[in-house]
Structure formats: structure tokens, C-alpha cells
Nucleic acid binder design. Sequence first.
RNA 1: GGGCGAGUAGCUCAGUUGGUUAGAGCGCCUGCCUUACACGCAGGAUGUCGGGGGUUCGAGUCCCUCCUCGCUCACCA
Length: 924
Amino acid sequence: MSNAPATTPLPPQYDPASTEATLYKEWLDAGIFTADPGHSRRTGGDREPFVIVMPPPNVTAVLHMGHGLNNTVQDVVIRWRRMCGDEALWVPGTDHAGIATQNVVEKQIAAEGKTRFDMGREAFVARTTEFVTETGGTILEQLKAIGSSCDWTRTAYTLSPELSKAVREAFVQLHERGLIYRGHRVIHWCSRCLTSLSDEEAEHSEETGALYHVRYPLTDGSASITIATTRPETMLADVAVAVHPDDERYKHLIGKTLSLPIANVEIPIIADAEGVDPEFGTGAVKITPAHDANDFEMGTRHELPMPVILSPEGLMANGIDAGARVPAELLGIDRFEARERVVQMLKHLNVLEKIEPYTHAVRHCYRCDTVVEPRLSDQWFVKMKPLAEPALQAVRDRKIRILPERWEAVYVNWLEGIRDWNISRQLWWGHRIPVWYCDSCGEVTVSRDDISSCPKCGGKARQDEDVLDTWFSSWLWPFSTLGWPNTESIDLKAFYPTDDLITAPEILFFWVARMIMGGFGFMGEAPFQTVMLTGTVRDMNHVKMSKSLGNGIDPLDVIKLFGTDALRYTVIAGLGMGADVMLDPNDLEKSFAPGRNFVTKLWNIGRFLLTNVGEETVQPLSTISPDRLRRSDRWILHRLNEAIAECDSALGPARPRNGVWEESELRSGLRLSEYTEAARRFVWNELADWYLESTKVRLAADGDDRDVARSVLAHCFDAALRLLQPIVPFITETLWSRLPVATENRGAFIAVAHWPAKNDGFATELEFELVREAINAVRQLRADYSLPPGERIHAHLDASASGSNASRDRTVFDEESDFIARITRCDISTNGGSSEAGASILLSSGSKIIVPLAGVIDLEKECKKAKTELEKLHTQLTALEGRLANPGFTDRAPANVVAAERQKLTEWTARREQLSQKVIQLCG
RNA sequence: GGGCGAGUAGCUCAGUUGGUUAGAGCGCCUGCCUUACACGCAGGAUGUCGGGGGUUCGAGUCCCUCCUCGCUCACCA
């Protein structure tokens, strides 16, 4: 890209389609997104590193609005830091997504009439690998389309050889530290995916079921106990009925035996204070240790047998210890069908007392939504308590902040009650557990390297069949992507710890909390200093967008229609901190209008500038002597300073000062919608609406002043483009490359240009504010009196009441008369008579704008309007006077507040005086 | 059931340690094709700040209470 001014004028319409792909390629070719570890201060360089690791999308994922939103946020932040001079690194990558990917491939082969078991493990993994290689990573290409400025030379993949090594290292280290153990207990089992799940992967959802009351008769026939259950089919695996030891209803029955209907086995009545709430149901609990986590605990306490009556597929079966509990007619029946049948059988046996409707939370597989079955099995677990401690402490000590704040409480709450993490999955797609068993001597070996023979007896070593939870690789992401476990890795030294972690709240526990634990656990340091949780994209009914619900928006459709920048601007501008973004999938035109309109506006400002400023090089503002600046120049330069300050303040400090967030900065920054609004207001409402209009007269004339206007205009637009680059990188790059400003201080791309800095030389420009006031006044008068917009009108300035400002006011209006006349079609003379009748508006300087309007004014209407206004003012003034007369207020309120009120009193009193004169004049 | 949060203009949300005419964007109404832009320009309307009570000279802001939503965790069978 060249800095030479354009030789062809800008086309009237911005065409994103023809520019975006080319531009993106130019950025890539120039390597501006590639970070250099040598530049990082941590490795002796002179730049602060600023690092974001991308939440890796599933390798099979296709871009949706959620990705669009989340990655745009990350890109805005990283582009901002890059311009600020940080060595900015955004690490992209994908997740192999164990269960999710396996499910996709299983579906494919199911269509061919096969199962993975028909294929065998090796062939299935090969097939999945092939699938992932061919179609996977599509999403990364799509992320390029939304402008993501990732360092693609560092693209990572959780199942790559490098990251697999990290996974194995992590497992072995935890094992060495005694934090990994094999447990035999009831876990969540998905009978469709045929794997165990972690607590987080088994999601609760409220369901209306039934509470079945079943009578179990005593074996001696003397009495019976009624139990309540939501899962009657599991009664076949009951091994006892527990009651509270102090429960008077049942005390005398403890120790006796019951005859379990259908299964026809004898089970004892036991007492358990911990596991039984006498208030609930009938106060008697059936104990099914193999199919309920709570019952498993009680079963363990009382050393009860644990018969299994369900197959892994969720079919009724006589498993371990079950004997012949499941009768022949139920064998092989699905658990839900079996529930119906058991209920029927209980009815026939006349032991079903009643069925109550009952709402309770049922766990579902987060991947296939199948109802999860509690199931007794052997799994590998990570002991989480020791890992959670530093993760909790880091947030309490403000080493890590979570935005928005409310999620911190959720985070703390979860970590305080953390339970051990089941990390083994009975899947084929993933990192195989690095544990080997020796069938000869029973030795269990945990190893970094594959082994084929037992290190103890030399017998054949057999690797554990299971793979690790996909999140076991994810929680290492902030350092595994930087080279860990090679602690000498230059990337690791230069870029760890990272800075911001930007993701959706759904994976706060799955991923974010575990990454923090992993960061401390393996690196001894927090993996990042800020967690920013973005909102959710929803439709107009506040329903979360999803492909399955059909209410999604394809970001690529939006890009095709309105361009990437319009998409980015719309989502960023609409995204309050942690707030959801509502978009209408049925009306893209309306949903993305803010972005499209803004981009068009920017384009047109650029067109005006390039046409009217001309193509000869503009002198840098620094070469313009301050005394050549006019009041409008000083005004816009001051507004620019304010805009820069507002953007900086909204974006906030990039990092904590000494590794710990100070209270005052803890909740500041990353308010992207505020930053966007500040930049928008400057470029649209100030630069375009006022300053640009004011330069039209100057640019049309020849002479020195034309060069001043050109310099200021170009300077301001240049700065505006820089402020906007992170949000709308493509159009700003396109326009910036054509700006005819001197080449000094410019790199090749705005994407790596310097972030604008405040220049404190420009104080508030009061004179130009006066001009704006006058213009607004004339506009209002024209609207109030319904004067045709095209009609040329005359007015005069009455400066007689403005005291010492009178001559200044007259000078200002004389000098700005061309501009005022052009913009309002109203000529203001400064030497007219002061007593002339007409509509008037008072300016803050005390001068008055008077439009002679004899004959045009509807006196009656005006009179009424003025009277209403006067009344309102009078009421407020009375209140104000009362307040100031109240010693309670004047004595206790802060002095500055009282002073402000006094000031107001003076102003209002003057205005009331003026208004009453007006009323007299109008109403007679 | 535990924890947390929210209820401010038709919609989405700002409102900093209480300070007195409550703001923005979008939408809506009116008028304008003013030679960068109708994806634009100018003007305008709109709120018992969820209800009730309290503290205070003063409450959208602090306290209590009620109502309504939302998020999150959870082995009451």
C-alpha cells in the first residue's frame, strides 16, 4: 500500500466486497499481526506485551453470531493495544472437542449404516482425523473474514503433537503431586454417548415428572413402608430402605426386612441420619447405590451390595451383583419404557399407593441432551480443592478481575463448593489417558512416554482405553499454546502471563475457572489479569440465537450485505458491559442499520475531504502557527482532545499497575460501547456536523486560510480514523491510505499507526460555542415559526445587554457571518436597532438574536407558549428559592453545591424577567 | 433450596462517593432531495426512575419490605 494520494476520486458508494479481502491479505503479507517475542519487555525488548488467547472454537464449528460478537470484541481490544505500541499477540486456534466431534462423525457413519464399534478404534480415529483435516478449521478462515487480527503463525490445535505433549505432562505432574486418582463411584453417564461426564457437562433442567409412592411390605407381613421415588424402575436395584433414626413412625421397624416387589428380594430397613430428611416424601428412602450418587454414599456407609440393573446403553439388564432382580419380561427394555412397565406391574401387585405430579431438576448430557443416568463405575478424577485455593485467592487479591463484576460472586461461589473433576471419558476421540496396566503383576504405570512393557515385571503393558475430558486440554491453553511444557520457550517467557480473556459466561466453569487453576497449578502464576464475559446474542424475543432454533444470523450473510465493518460496528456499539445484543434475524436491514449508516457516513466524510481538501499534500498541523488558527479550528481541536480522553477513559488501563488491580481501576475500562459512542460523536456530531460545514467557505476560497483549514480538517479526520480503526478496520484503512497528509509520522497501515494522543494546547473554545448557539437559535426560530427552510431571512444581533462582551460578540458574528449565513440561510447584522420587534433568543453571553417577524407570528399561539414556559420556570424558581432559604440546605450542603444553586438562581431570575417581558409583549 | 443480579422514555441501556429541570442510541412524529451523505439534514414528543415504607434539608442513587423477571449452583428420594 502506498501513501501517495489517490489519483482517482472515491466512488460514491463504499464497496466493502471489493476491498476487504485484498486489504486483509496486505495486512497478512506485511506480517503486522505477527508478534515478536524479542520485542517483549520480559525478554529484553522495549514494548509491553499484550496477549489474548482466543477461546478455541470447536474444530468442526461453523461461524455463528456468537463467535462474531466474541471475536470482534477481542479484535477491537488487540487492535487498540497494537496501536498503543504494545507487542500485541492474539493466539488463535481450535479445539478438538472430544464428544462433539465424535458425535458428528458417528452420525456420518450411522448414515452409512455402521457404528464406531463396527469400524474399530483405529479406523474410527483415522476417519475422524481425516474429517477434521478436511473440513475442520473452516471457522478460522471465517474469522479472517470478520477482520480478526490473529497471529496465524501461532495457530494452535488442542490435539496437535505439541499440545498433546502438554496434556500428558499435566496429567503426569498432577499424578506425581497426588492430585489425580482413580475412583470407584457413581458418576453421570450418557447412555447415548456411552461415556461418563463431569458435573459441569451434566446440565440441570427443570422437568415435570411424577413422584411414585410405592408400598414395600415387611417380610413378616405385619406392616409395610411406603417410599417415594421419581425413578420407579431403579427399585429393582434397591438394597435397603433408610429412615431417620429419630423418626417415630419408623423407629420400631429398623432392623426388620422388607420384601422388594417385582425383584422379590429381601432388603433391610436401616437408619441413616445424614441421608434421610424425615420431612420429605414419606420419610423413608429407597437405597439404590449403583444408580444414585446419594444412595451410593449411604451404601458405602452401610457396606451394602451395589447391584447394577442398567446396561451402558440404558437398557434393563442384570449386571454386576444383580442376580435375577430384573425379571425376564423387562430385560433389554429401555429405561423409560421400563418405568412405565414397572408402574403397571406395581399397580397389579397393588403396591402403588399414588402418583403425584412433581417438578424436579433432571440432568441432561450437554452434548446430546439425553437424560443422564447416575452409574457406578471406575473413573479418573482430579482433586480440585488444592488447585482452587490460589484461584480463589487471585480474585480476592485482585490479581484477576472479572468483568462485569457480578460474575465474580458466581465464580467464588462455585470454587468454594468445588468438587473433584471426573476427567476420563469412554470415547475414542481425544487424548488417550497416559496410564498403563500390567495384566501380569497388576502394576499401574503413569508415564510421559508410551510404554509397551511393565517396568516392574516386564509383562505386557496395556494402555487405559479412555480418553481425557476435552477440557483437560483447554485448561492448559494459555501456556500450552506458548510452548509449555518447554519452560525455556521464548514465547512462554515473552508472552505469559497473558492479559485479557474474553469469552461467553457459559464456559466460566468449564474453561475460565479451570484455566486459572491450571495457570497457578502448572505455571505458578495467574494466566491473565482480566476476564471479560460478553453478553449473548439474542433475537427480538430475547431467545438465544442458535442454529437448531432457526433464529440465527449468519455473520457471513451480513458481511455480504453490508460489509464487515458494519457488522463489527453494530455489535460493538450495541454491547454494554456484559449486556446481551438483540438482533432481528428476520430484518437484517434494520438490525445492522447502525453499522451500515455509520460506515456510509464515514465514507462520505472521506469523499468530501478528498474532493475539497484536494490532492496536494497537506501541511502537518504542527507546522501551522497557532495564531493562524481560527475559532472553529481551536474548537474542533479541543473537541478532538476531549474525544481522545473519552475513548481512553472508556477503554481504560490495559493492565494493573503492579500486578494487582487498584480499587479505582478495578471496574474501569473495556467499555467498548462507550468508546464507540465517544468516537462516533466526535466524527459525526462534531467533525462532520459542525467543523466540516464551517470549512466549506474557507476551502472554496484561495489563500493561507485555506491551508489552515485543510491541515486541521485532515488532522482531525486522521485522528478520528485512528480512534475508529479497532472497530472498523477496513474502511479506516481504505480512507487513511488516501489521506493527502505529509508522510512523516505515518507507517504503511493505520492498523499499526499510533493511537492518537491528547494535545493539551487547546482550551475550551467559547467563541465558537457562541456561534453554535446562534445557529441553533436561528434554526429553532425557523422551526417555531414555520418559516420555509429555503426562505432567506434576516436577523440582527443585539449585544447591548452583554456588557463587556458586546464588542467581542459583534466581532465574532461579523467574522463568522459567511458560515452562519451558509448554514442557516439567515443573515445576521450586528448593527441593527435593538428595539425592533420580533422573535428573539438570548445567548449565554447576554447578547440577543432578534428575527423581525411582524405579521408572521401567530400571537395567540406564541403567547400561550410563552406563558406555559414562564409558569414552568416560575414553579422551578420557587422551589429553588425555597431551597436556598432553608438553613438546612445552606448550612449542610457542600459549599460548591450551594454556590451552583445561587448561580442558577441568578440565571433563572434573569430569564424569568426576560420571559415575562416577552409575555407582556406577546399577550398585551 | 443456596448464591448473585436486574426492574429508568416504545426498545436496548448510561446514570460515578445522595445534590435538586433524569440522559444516550435506536424507534416514533413534523419539515426538508441545502452540490459529502435521504444509509442524510433540521426540529419535536415521550418517563408517578417496579409498588409501599423509612433515613435525610435533599433519594433514581442509602436502608427495610413486597412484587416481577433473569443468571448461576444444588444428591431432597
